[in-house]
Design a protein around this nucleic acid. Structure first.
Lengths: 224, 224
DNA sequence: ACAATGCATATTGTATACAACCTGCAATAA
DNA sequence: TTATTGCAGGTTGTATACAATATGCATTGT
């Protein structure tokens, strides 16, 4: 079901990737006309795509002035990651309560696939997706779809910054170790330790991003 | 700023009210053509309004089949209210930490205004708004805008059912007492007790809604 | 009788055309 | 000089027109 993709959805999906990939600086205006030419469609599906992205927090509309990509302040990033801690530990705890062997294997297979991709090539272009896929697999047994939707939303909002962090720091291996740790605790059924690890995992990612952002702000000051 | 309202926004706001007011059964199709005639606009702003409402979880789009009002299952309602407990106690705790007299007075004034409206007339049409306004005032000192946005989102999604509950049960006075209780605990700076009360406040509202829904389902079975 | 197929109709999705509005600059007046 | 007003150009917002798709019914064949 819902296999058909309208042009608006196509544009939305592609544009989301481009924004998350860092193609646009925060605050740049997305001209409907130009995008319509790019995708060889009219402005109507472009507008609808932009509206979708607005609801995801990636762009902002100003009436009669158009859509601009958003930029998060440090305090908002901190807030988002605090929410992630709150929601994801909640889900993880519930997930561990009704975890099966199959669930654990599923999560582990994602991790292994990622390990291989990392060791062989080093293509971190879609690391962010692998990362989220693992978390999702781990949380899925909780069977809390609404909560997962919120978590996805938070991830989408902060994904740009996560990628940026990975670009500037070499935290991937550390994250990878923590993922294995999470899996081990989950396998042992130790929800408390798993949640504690998850909490620091998220918090440290947050601090890494904040550090990169503040560094960038400083170098930009010097340039000016 | 942003004082201008496009037609799409106008339609979205009005349609949201109508949906939350219970004008449409869950699952009814919203024909773009009919709505466009109603509001005397073209279908374009109607579509955009429906897209906005989709992002709020009030309607669902099916490609080439249009928009339908959503209906929440009991398990989803339970999940939403569980999320509310999680997020709202989090915010409340933070709010109590940096609460000023002015904040408390502000919240109290909303409560008093509502008390008066309730005693004099009994217009519960917009009780739901008063209710949320009070909660918002109480949470505002936490200064967590992203979190508040999520909470608003959850409230919008469940608002229809809250109204329904109020229509079928007489829980308003009880909620009112609990609101005063919340305010008292907040004034004393007792975050633990305030959060405990908030938790039961939300949970009982949830159970009330579930009871109404299951009752309605039963009577519908009998009719058929 | 019943299932499958094709057509008619209606509704959605999109392109094009036009109106409303914002922005920046030039001209004018204090 | 500086603030204000009006206009020009460009972008967004919306109406209209058309294309694509889903649904229901009639038709056909078994």
């Amino acid at each position: 079901m819902a296999t058909y993709k309208t042009r608006a959805q196509f544009v939305a999906d592609d544009l989301r990737q481009r924004i998350l990939g860092g193609e646009f600086q925060g605050g740049t205006q997305l001209r409907q006309d130009a995008l319509a030419r790019d995708y060889e469609v009219s402005r109507i599906p472009v507008r609808e795509a932009l509206l979708t992205l607005e609801s995801e927090g990636l762009v902002e509309f100003h009436a009669h002035r158009g859509a601009f990509t958003t930029e998060l302040s440090v305090s908002k990033i901190r807030e988002l990651f605090e929410l992630r801690v709150l929601l994801e530990t909640h889900v993880l705890r519930r997930a561990i309560a009704n975890l099966t062997e199959a669930d654990l294997d599923e999560a582990e297979s994602i991790l292994i696939k990622y390990d291989e991709a990392l060791n062989s090539g080093g293509e971190i272009g879609n690391w962010s997706e692998y990362n989220f896929a693992f978390h999702k697999a781990l949380y899925a047994p909780a069977k809390l779809p609404e909560t997962m939707a919120l978590i996805s939303q938070l991830n989408t909002k902060s994904d740009r910054y996560i990628r940026m962090q990975l670009l500037y720091t070499q935290e991937i291996e550390k994250a990878e170790k923590e993922h294995h740790g999470l899996l081990d605790f989950a396998r042992q059924g130790d929800a408390d330790q798993a949640c504690a690890l998850l909490e620091t995992h998220i918090q440290e990612a947050c601090e890494g991003i904040v550090a990169v952002l503040e560094n960038r702000a400083k170098t930009m000051m010097q340039q000016a």
